[in-house]
């Protein structure tokens, strides 16, 4: 199970508040934790990733940076090498292009290149996802790109409790962890949100281990493997199909590195039918990795060809109707499930 510590109780929080609560608790517990990024101070994070933390911890630990991602991500790496536990925010994952060298050639490789003698206990937080007409440079998920490059753990919470539990784990991990939060699950008041973006969150210490997927809806007819906002769309579809007597199992991957292949295989072995829903690009990504995992293990466990619902290999369009055509929304997910039945 995901809760490793007995919580004192729960309350309903948005995903962003749950994430901030984990950061707050870890900053109170460990002096070496600090948070750095653009507009994370007085603004509280463009997507409310640091709301209220500046007042509590001051500008020495909640640090507004210039628009200088190579500089401040590299700073985080150097501080982590010296034993601090930085949390560094890249405002949008789409901005990885201006600082990717620091991320994949330095943050992710130093431990390996040092033969294990140097650790980089750093969290790189970044906002992902579209659905609100922010165009091709502010709407990508790109988690498959991070996950493809060795040396960084990659977590993608879809709900408030996991956002808290995975953040706690990420901060305590001795490896670099990329923590991708979808704008559409944060529960922001200024963006359409799924009803599940506010939910029960354990009080006190809450740890969700990195590398464990979760069966968020058990079912026997078909397996939907997904992550992030697409979990909610998939659950919506599963509820609808239940009325037609289709029993859908939905797996929230939660972590991409390491990937919990066992949970996927166990489910597909049971249902014999697989749909992968991924808001990242279709080719060379998470959806292909999941299908390959099944194919490499025992393609015979599939009773119908697998279906992938992802962004066809096109930049995210601006116009609403175009964007919603390429995103993995409920209509496309339902069609894919019906196709494998």
């Amino acid at each position: 199970m995901t809760i490793t510590e007995t919580p004192q109780g729960t309350r309903r929080l948005t995903t962003s508040k749950a994430m901030v609560e984990a950061i707050d608790q870890e900053m109170a517990r460990d002096e070496s934790v600090f948070y750095m990024g653009e507009d994370v101070g007085a603004y509280g994070g463009i997507f409310s990733s640091t709301t209220g933390l500046l007042d509590k911890y001051g500008p020495g630990r909640i640090i507004d940076t210039p628009i200088s991602e190579t500089g401040f991500i590299g700073l985080g790496i150097g501080a982590a090498v010296e034993g601090m536990r930085p949390i560094v925010e890249l405002m949008f994952a789409d901005f990885m292009g201006v600082c990717l060298d620091q991320i994949y050639n330095h943050m992710a490789k130093i431990h390996f290149e040092s033969g294990g003698n140097v650790t980089v206990p750093m969290v790189l937080t970044t906002a992902v996802g579209g659905g609100y007409s922010d165009g091709a440079q502010h709407s990508q998920c790109l988690w498959g790109t991070f996950a493809h490059l060795p040396g960084m753990k990659v977590v993608v919470p879809s709900n408030p409790a996991d956002a808290k539990g995975l953040m706690t784990s990420a901060i305590r991990d001795d490896n670099p962890v990329v923590y991708l939060f979808h704008k559409g699950v944060m529960g922001l008041p200024w963006m359409a949100k799924n009803r599940r973006s506010t939910d029960e969150v354990p009080e006190g210490e809450h740890v969700v281990p990195i590398g464990e997927a979760k069966v968020v809806r058990p079912g026997s007819d078909v397996t939907v493997v997904t992550l992030s906002l697409s979990v909610h769309h998939s659950l919506d579809v599963a509820d609808k199909l239940a009325e037609d007597g289709v029993d859908t199992e939905v797996i929230d991957l939660r972590s991409l590195v390491p990937l919990d292949r066992d949970t996927v295989l166990e489910s597909v072995r049971k249902t014999g039918r697989l749909v992968v829903v991924d808001e990242d690009y279709l080719s060379y990504g998470v959806s292909g990795e999941i299908v390959a995992t099944v194919a490499e293990t025992d393609p015979g466990m599939l009773r119908a060809p697998a279906q992938r619902v992802a962004v066809p290999d096109v930049p995210i369009p601006y116009a609403h109707d175009l964007e919603y055509t390429v995103l993995p929304r409920q209509d496309r997910i339902e069609r894919a499930i019906r196709a494998v039945l």
Binding site: L75, G78, S114
Partner: peptide, 27 residues
């Protein structure tokens, strides 16, 4: 990489500069 003397290097031109900031920050 030598933790004993806080020595490191990078094969990517100029990209070793930012890490020094972090070490200085921690110090």
């Amino acid at each position: 990489f030598d933790p004993a003397t806080h020595f490191s290097c990078s094969g990517i031109v100029a990209e070793g500069f930012p890490a020094a900031l972090g070490q200085a920050f921690a110090f």
